[in-house]
């Protein structure tokens, strides 16, 4: 990625887009997390956000259904005063006619300031970013990256533990198909955390160790003494005899329950990117345990992280960035 404007006062994050965590430096990640932390301190009920994005247009372009991520981006943009347009496009209809690049051309002609894009194909958001002349935020592409999710996970951990460095984090479940896992692995390893992945062999991508993680097939072994347990969602179509034989077997060996969590550190936090399959990857009661589960806080941090990302990526458009 090239710098949009090297003279910009935007020293902390010098990329035109946020397409992934891979390739970001620890400084850049810290900068985004610090700014996100500032946004998280603001009280949503005070209605006192600075309208930094007044008269800006943010388009949420979703080629895959999403409720929580789209809403989180929409809320973040609106709190900063932006005009938000949501475009949900059934990818099947796109396939019939317009190509992704045609879509990009059409959108460019409308001159949005930020495009938030989710797409079922890995690499599609990057392709689109090369064809438009505004900032692009990856809202999740295929099994590749979901950078704002990794940032909100990291912010949640930092608020609870004060740091990322030196922590041991277990990422459990469908690592193979998970963009959340990949972004989190990049972020956590860059920030000096130790990352374990725990899954049946059928749900671990080949050569996963090359990402700097340790792989475990045995969840009990993998959870031993970890600080953080991140659960991943298992898509229903992967449950019946293809990647795993059944829900009950998956829950028995890879579902998080109190007994398995007991092997982690006594104060280990439980995270999940949502939406949860209760009784598949996580015990329902555990998901609701406010002493262990920070799943609600993750959602809250999502809005703060997205505000920070929108702020940072639109700074080149604004005459006098803060702190200049």
């Amino acid at each position: 990625m090239t710098s949009l404007n090297s003279d910009s006062a935007n020293l902390g994050y010098r990329h035109p887009h946020l397409l992934g965590i891979e390739g970001l430096s620890a400084q850049e990640i810290s900068f985004l997390l610090d700014l996100s932390g500032d946004y998280a301190k603001l009280d949503p009920r005070s209605h006192s956000y600075e309208r930094l994005l007044d008269a800006h247009t943010v388009i949420n372009l979703f080629f895959e259904t999403s409720t929580r991520t789209r809403t989180s981006f929409e809320l973040a943009a609106k709190r900063l005063g932006a005009e938000v347009i949501n475009m949900s496009v059934a990818w099947s209809s796109i396939k019939k006619g317009e190509t992704l690049i045609d879509t990009a051309m059409t959108l460019t002609a409308m001159h949005p300031d930020v495009l938030v894009v989710r797409h079922p194909d890995s690499g599609a958001v990057k392709l689109l970013s090369e064809k438009v002349d505004c900032a692009v935020i990856n809202g999740g592409d295929g099994s590749h990256e979901h950078p704002t999710q990794a940032l909100l996970d990291a912010l949640t951990i930092r608020r609870r533990r004060g740091r990322l460095e030196g922590l041991t984090v277990a990422i459990c479940g469908d690592v193979m198909h998970s963009r959340v896992a990949r972004s989190n692995i990049h972020l956590l390893t860059t920030m000096g955390a130790k990352v374990r992945v725990i899954a049946p062999p059928t749900l671990l991508p080949s050569g996963v160790e090359s990402l700097g993680v340790t792989a475990y097939f045995d969840m009990r072994e993998g959870l031993r003494d970890v600080d953080i347990v991140m659960m991943l969602r298992l898509q229903t179509e992967r449950m019946q005899g293809s990647y795993v034989p059944s829900i009950r077997e998956y829950f028995h060996f890879y579902g998080l329950d109190r007994e398995k969590l007991g092997l982690a550190k006594p104060d280990a936090l439980v995270m999940h990117p949502g939406p949860m399959n209760r009784g598949v990857e996580i015990d329902s009661e555990l998901a609701d345990d406010i002493d262990r589960s920070v799943i609600r806080e993750q959602v809250e941090m999502g809005v703060a992280v997205r505000m920070a990302c929108l702020d940072v990526l639109t700074r080149p458009l604004r005459p006098s960035p803060e702190g200049a």
Binding site: Q240, G241, S242, P245, S246, R248, E249, H252, F253
Partner: peptide
């Protein structure tokens, strides 16, 4: 290895 020996879906090998 597979349910009903049909060669498609793997069985609950762990259990």
């Amino acid at each position: 290895v597979t349910r009903r020996l049909e060669g498609q879906e793997i069985t609950e090998m762990g259990l």
